[in-house]
């Protein structure tokens, strides 16, 4: 059994909304509202869900880019939230992040060499005289070639820039990489290159990924386990096969069935969800999905379901719905 690298417990991130005459806090955006999960060493865990469900916020809270409101984050046996700002900055050596738009997170006036040198400098893990070699190695590893190190970011294509972002993240030999929509902006043909690269690097350097994406095709290909979020909560979590082939939560089912299949012969039975995702400012009481759920009952409107495992679910596969058994058996009655 591999050991847990990251343990997230009851994590909450509420963003205050200021208003009124005096700019007091009048309400909160409950972006992430009590989520618990573990990430094991060497695996890829994906977080999926619709826009605004709190995927990025989760990543940022773990890295303490925004200070979480409540909860625990344990990384490699150490409580991250207890660290001082300075110690946390040091810790970032082990937790790196790759963003969707690599261009926004790199200085356009620096060459790739300077970008990588700066990253190495900050964490100071490689002695000065070995840095040039390290940079050349990194460039080869991400498939850009050492000869391109002295070019500027704008001279690269989108996919190549994403490789620069990966090279920078890798430069400090991290243990965990949080990839927030890292391939979402890329065209499929380029996206495939970057996905393959990430998978290969994971094997070569024993990396652990927390992979945030809304593209379930990519997620199915890259993940070991998947977390499905809806309005700041986890609605289903499990290994990839369970989530994709044996989903139990009505939202997961609807989400999967909504994705168009690139096969004109595919017979898809679509669960069309009505309406929009409600606002995270005053999320629905009870089960957050009840406003759109085709199975919702009075109980759903009042009582919030907990994540649980039922018969017929693999170990570690859990859903947060009151009626998973009934829906499965076809005995569920909607009043």
């Amino acid at each position: 059994m591999p050991k847990e690298l990251l343990k997230v417990k009851d994590l909450k991130q509420y963003f205050p909304i200021k208003g009124g005459l005096l700019g007091r806090t009048i309400n909160h955006v409950k972006a992430v509202d009590g989520i618990t999960f573990d990430v094991y060493e060497g695996e890829t865990v994906s977080i999926v869900g619709e826009s605004g469900c709190g995927k990025s916020t989760t990543g940022r809270a773990i890295l303490r880019l925004d200070e979480p409101t409540a909860g625990e984050v344990e990384f490699d046996g150490e409580d991250l939230l207890a660290l001082s700002k300075k110690d946390m900055r040091k810790k970032r050596k082990d937790l790196q992040v790759i963003f969707q738009d690599p261009y926004a997170s790199i200085n356009p006036r620096q060459t790739v060499r300077q970008i990588l040198e700066e990253a190495l400098e900050i964490q100071n893990v490689v002695p000065k005289n070995e840095r040039a070699k390290k940079i050349a190695d990194l460039m080869e590893v991400v498939g850009l070639g050492a000869h391109q190190a002295d070019r500027f970011p704008h001279e690269f294509s989108g996919g190549q820039r994403q490789r620069i972002g990966i090279a920078r993240a890798l430069s400090v030999d991290p243990k965990l990489i949080i990839a927030d929509e890292a391939v979402s902006a890329l065209d499929v043909s380029i996206q495939a290159q970057v996905i393959n690269l990430m998978k290969q690097l994971q094997r070569d350097f024993a990396l652990t990924y927390l992979f945030i994406s809304h593209d379930l095709g990519v997620v199915r290909h890259i993940s070991d386990r998947v977390i499905v979020m809806y309005l700041g909560k986890i609605v289903e979590i499990g290994d990839k096969t369970s989530i994709f082939d044996n989903p139990h939560h009505p939202y997961t089912k609807a989400l999967l069935s909504a994705i168009p299949v690139p096969d004109p012969d595919a017979q898809s039975e679509r669960v069309l969800l009505e309406g929009d995702v409600p606002s995270p400012i005053n999320p629905p009481q009870g089960c957050r999905f009840h406003t759109r759920c085709p199975f919702a009952t009075e109980r759903c409107r009042v009582e919030a379901p907990e994540l649980r495992n039922i018969d017929g679910m693999k170990e570690g596969h859990m859903g947060a719905c009151h009626f998973m058994e009934e829906i499965k058996n076809g005995t569920h009655q909607v009043e």
């Binding site: 043909s189 495939a192 379930l216 994709f244 096969d263």
Partner: peptide, 26 residues
């Protein structure tokens, strides 16, 4: 063909094989 091959699918498990890629960029 390259486009269809490089597409990761949510409805089919491709196992641990690499995605086919179109080398280079536009």
């Amino acid at each position: 063909v390259g486009l269809l091959n490089s597409l990761p699918r949510h409805d089919i498990d491709l196992g641990d094989v690499e995605l086919q890629v179109i080398e280079g960029s536009v």
